[in-house]
């Protein structure tokens, strides 16, 4: 096999080797940040993320859809994002037991470690997103799932010109690079 260790640069994003992660405690420090023309991209950490699926999931959790502003984000309170007809992403919520809840007819899986979470702030945020997909604040959408630069992401609005993105950690490195390149292209 071809050894490509030098072809692919070492990851920019990394939490396995970071600080006290080795002892099982999530870091609370702000992490990687990139700034550009009227825009800042940074990685953030959320307390907990859980998928809850079931016919009643959307009603049970007050769900937010595009382009409404998700309350609770600023205060690090619990909020939920609609992913599918029958699935929500609970953020910063209470601890839930993984598995099938036969009482509530809900399937529950913790995914706190599945995602890297990025925050885009600034007037040019939407211009960066528009490099990755066809999107506008005037076209509503029930689900926060999108393909951005070809990657599946959870995308929602957390303030007037502030957006939050969850991306599968395995793809986060190249997705981050797309965002950085797009920020460069704003100039």
């Amino acid at each position: 096999m071809r050894d490509d260790r030098n072809k692919w640069p070492s990851p920019v994003l990394n939490d396995a080797t970071r600080g006290d992660a080795t002892r099982g405690e999530p870091t609370s420090a702000e992490t990687e940040t990139v700034s550009g023309l009227n825009i800042t991209l940074s990685r953030i950490k959320l307390q907990r993320q859980v998928w809850v699926s079931g016919t009643s999931a959307l009603q049970r959790f007050k769900c937010h859809s595009w382009p409404s502003i998700t309350p609770g984000f600023k205060q690090a309170q619990a909020y939920s994002v609609c992913l599918r007809r029958d699935r929500v992403l609970l953020v910063n919520g209470t601890l839930m037991k993984d598995g099938w809840d036969a009482q509530l007819d809900l399937a529950i899986t913790e995914v706190s470690d599945s995602y890297y979470v990025f925050k885009l702030v600034g007037e040019n945020s939407l211009a960066v997103l528009r490099r990755g997909t066809e999107i506008s604040l005037t076209t509503p959408s029930a689900s926060a799932m999108r393909k951005l630069f070809g990657y599946d992401v959870v995308l929602y609005r957390t303030a007037e010109i502030e957006f939050c993105l969850h991306i599968d950690r395995a793809n986060a490195e190249s997705f981050w690079a797309h965002l950085v390149e797009s920020i460069d292209n704003l100039a």
């Binding site: 072809k7 692919w8 070492s10 990851p11 990394n14 939490d15 396995a16 080797t17 490099r131 630069f149 070809g150 950690r169 395995a170 793809n171 986060a172 490195e173 190249s174 690079a177 797309h178 390149e181 797009s182």
Partner: peptide
């Protein structure tokens, strides 16, 4: 943009470093 290392990039392991 989807050329060179942006063309179908491989997934990365948490333990890569």
């Amino acid at each position: 943009q989807h050329t060179h290392l942006h063309s179908k990039p491989p997934k990365r392991l948490v333990l890569e470093p």
